[in-house]
């Protein structure tokens, strides 16, 4: 298939970027989106040009490294997959495809389509952990956990921290990420003792990073490659409000 790509090119963090038109010829429809970019890059290199820079790692949909906003949708038009798992058969011969970085003030562009998502690492460092040794995996049913809570915690734990929620949100809010990372621990007995300090610290770090805040558009859950529900945002809101009250009166 032959495609016309409109790709964001930006030489560095402080450079002014712009869209560049690149023709992608003879792309096999079984190629993944990133393999398509590999093919395009090889041709650019052969012609002596600068290849398009983009993030990728596992290419199995589990590491959260790949990004790209494709035709205005983070991770592209397929549901529940990352860009590396998106295949060219989702497009038609002759299509024009717009490829942009995940845009947010807190995700500065490093170069072309590569953005710096270390703001997420700092949010995790602020409270997305359990600070005591919880030991190795406990015996099954040794520690009773309500089935519903175990399921919800597991669903939240599927977050791979890719940042698509931020990229899709009209306000560049990371609350699906923060909610998922907090819920994953807060719902389990090992995470409960630090629930209050965790949500206070993570939300304060989130605000300090310059992200926007959730105004309930639910774009995040629509693009999340792990299909995490915005219910985790509701839980984070509730837990933050309760923790603030406790902090104020305790």
């Amino acid at each position: 298939m032959n495609l016309t790509l409109k790709i964001w090119r930006q030489e560095g963090p402080d450079a002014k970027g712009q869209m560049q038109t690149v023709e992608a010829r003879d792309i096999p429809e079984e190629a993944s989106f990133l393999e398509m970019l590999d093919i395009v890059n090889e041709r650019i290199i052969e012609e002596g040009g600068d290849p398009v820079q983009f993030d990728h790692d596992c290419r199995e949909g589990i590491c959260g490294t790949c990004s790209l906003t494709i035709n205005g949708v983070p991770h592209g038009p397929d549901n529940g997959v990352t860009t590396c798992q998106l295949h060219m058969r989702k497009f038609r011969d002759g299509d024009t495809i717009w490829i942009e970085p995940f845009r947010a003030k807190a995700f500065p562009v490093v170069r072309d389509l590569v953005v710096d998502r270390s703001a997420f690492d700092r949010i995790i460092a602020a409270g997305g952990y359990i600070s005591v040794r919880t030991g190795s995996a406990p015996d099954a049913n040794g520690l009773p956990i309500e089935k519903d809570h175990a399921d919800q915690s597991f669903d939240a734990a599927t977050c791979i921290g890719c940042g698509a929620c931020v990229a899709a949100c009209p306000n560049a809010s990371p609350m699906l990420f923060v909610g998922a990372k907090a819920s994953h621990l807060n719902l389990l007995p090992q995470g409960k003792p630090e629930l209050d300090i965790r949500v206070l610290a993570m939300v304060r770090q989130m605000d300090a990073e310059g992200f926007g805040n959730c105004t309930n558009h639910y774009e995040c859950e629509g693009v999340c490659p792990k299909e995490i529900s915005a219910d985790v945002i509701a839980r984070l809101n509730r837990e933050y409000a309760c923790a603030s009250v406790k902090e104020g009166v305790a």
Partner: peptide, 9 residues
């Protein structure tokens, strides 16, 4: 974004 497509809002 140059192109932004809404999915849920």
């Amino acid at each position: 974004y140059e192109v932004k497509t809404s999915v849920r809002t």
